Amino acid sequence: MFDRPVGGDASVLVSVDFGDPGYEESLQELRQLVVSAGMSIAGTVEARRPKPDPKFFVGSGKADELLAVVKTTDAKVAVFNHDLSPSQQRNLERLLEVRVVDRTGLILDIFALRAQSHEGKLQVELAQLEHLSTRLVRGWTHLERQKGGIGVRGGPGETQLELDRRMLRIRVKQLREKLAKLKQQRGMQRRARRRSQVLSVSLVGYTNAGKSTLFNRLTQSGVYAADQLFATLDTTSRKLYIPDGGPVVMSDTVGFIKHLPHALVEAFGATLEEAVQADLLLHIVDVASDSRDEQVEQVNLVLSEIGAQDVPQVLVLNQIDRVGIPPGLDRDEYGRISKVRVSAKTGEGLDLLRQALLEHQQGLQDQLTQSYQNA
C-alpha cells in the first residue's frame, strides 16, 4: 500500500476518451480537483479507447507510456479521471511503483482534508470505509495469512483479510449509529423552526459556483470561500432577517459534482437532509461557465437521488459581473419568482434575491395559516 498524497506531491493525470462529448470538461475538472487536493501536475497522459482494458484500464502500451512519464517527472501519484476496479488499481501500482488514485478516491481525499466539524469527519470516514470495503478483495498478500492459536485476536484459522473485513463492518456500524443520532437531532431542530414559522432555505449548486460567497454576503458570515472545488463541506446555518418579513434560516451545503461518488451521497445524508427538508432551495449557478446547463442538470439529478426534487427552487444565476449581464429576475406562469441574476462578489441583484425570499416567506406563512384553519 502507498501513503495518501500530501500537499506538493507531483502527479501525472490519466484520462481516457471513450467518446463522451463532455470529455474536455471532465479533464479540466480533474485538473481542478488535483490542485484542490494540494498536488502539482507534472504531466498528462491521454488515450482514446472503445472500452477500458481489463488489466490496466488504459491498455498495456499506454501503461508503458505512463510508466515512462512517471519516471521522467519523478511523480509520486498517478491520478485517473475514472473509477478503477481493485485489480486494475493493484496492477497499476505494481507496474508504476507509485500510488494510483481514481476519481472517487481523489474526491474522498479532498473531503478528508476539508472536513472540519465532528459530523463532517464522521461522514467522510464512513465514505472512505465504504470505498475501502470494495478494495478488500484479496487485495494484498499480507491480508491472506491466517491468524490462529491461543491468545490471538480472531477465531481459529481466521485470515487477516477476514479480520480486517470484520473490523471494518464494526466501525461502519458505529459510524452509521452516530450519524443517525445527529440526523435525529437535526430533525428536532427543524421541527422547532417549523413551529415558529421560520422559512428554511438551503443553498445548493455545483461545486465552486459561489454558494459560500453568496452565503457570506447575505448573512454577514465568515464561512470559508475560495476558488477551488469543495471549499466548503460542513453545512453551516445562519439567521437572516428580511426587511418587511422576518427571520430566515439559511444553510450552506456541500457542492455537487459530475459523478459524485454514491458513497459520499449516502454518507452525507445527514447534511444533505437540510436540502430535503428545506422550504426553499436556492440553486446557485455559475452563469459564466460554458457548462452551466450540464451542471444544473447534474445538481438536479443528485437532488432527485436524495429525495429533494419536489422542494420549491429558485435558480440564482451568479457571477453576472464576469459576463456583463445586468441584475434582474424572471417569474413563472404562476407569477412566482423562478430565476434571479446576481453577483455575490459585487452585491448586484441581492435586493432582488431578498425580494424572492420575502415572497416565499409570505407564501409559507399563508400555507401554515391555512393548515391551522383546516385543522
Rank of each mutant, 00 (worst) to 15 (best):
N81K: 05
P50R: 10
M39H: 05
K239N: 10
A226C: 09
Q361W: 14
D351M: 03
E333G: 05
K173S: 15
L129M: 09
Q309D: 15
K147H: 12
V58L: 14
K181D: 13
G307T: 01
Q313W: 01
V285H: 01
P312S: 02
L95P: 04
S371Y: 04
S237C: 14
A263D: 15
T219G: 10
R169H: 13
V342N: 00
D244I: 00
T104F: 06
L106T: 01
G245T: 08
E65S: 13
V70G: 05
D74Q: 15
H82Q: 11
D279Q: 02
T219W: 00
T219F: 08
E177C: 03
P5C: 08
E97W: 04
A209P: 07
T207M: 10
H131Q: 09
N91D: 10
V101L: 14
D20W: 02
R354W: 03
Q160G: 12
K62L: 04
R135M: 12
N91E: 13
S36M: 02
Q28I: 04
R49A: 14
A275H: 03
D164K: 10
A267G: 09
K147W: 08
V124I: 01
Q295I: 05
V124F: 10
D321E: 14
L161H: 07
M250Q: 01
K211M: 10
L358R: 10
F2I: 05
L143K: 06
G148Y: 03
V296M: 14
E333S: 14
S304T: 11
Q373D: 12
D164Q: 10
V248S: 05
L182T: 12
F268W: 02
L281A: 04
A270R: 00
D252R: 11
D9S: 02
N81C: 12
N216A: 02
A275N: 09
V204L: 04
D252F: 10
D332T: 08
K181C: 00
R354C: 14
E119V: 15
S200I: 09
S60P: 01
F215A: 04
R171P: 07
T104G: 09
L95D: 03
G307N: 04
G335F: 00
E266L: 09
S237R: 13
V34I: 08
L175Y: 09
M250S: 08
V198M: 12
Q88V: 11
Q116M: 07
V100K: 06
D234G: 04
Q355F: 01
A278R: 03
K178H: 11
T159L: 06
K51I: 00
S289L: 06
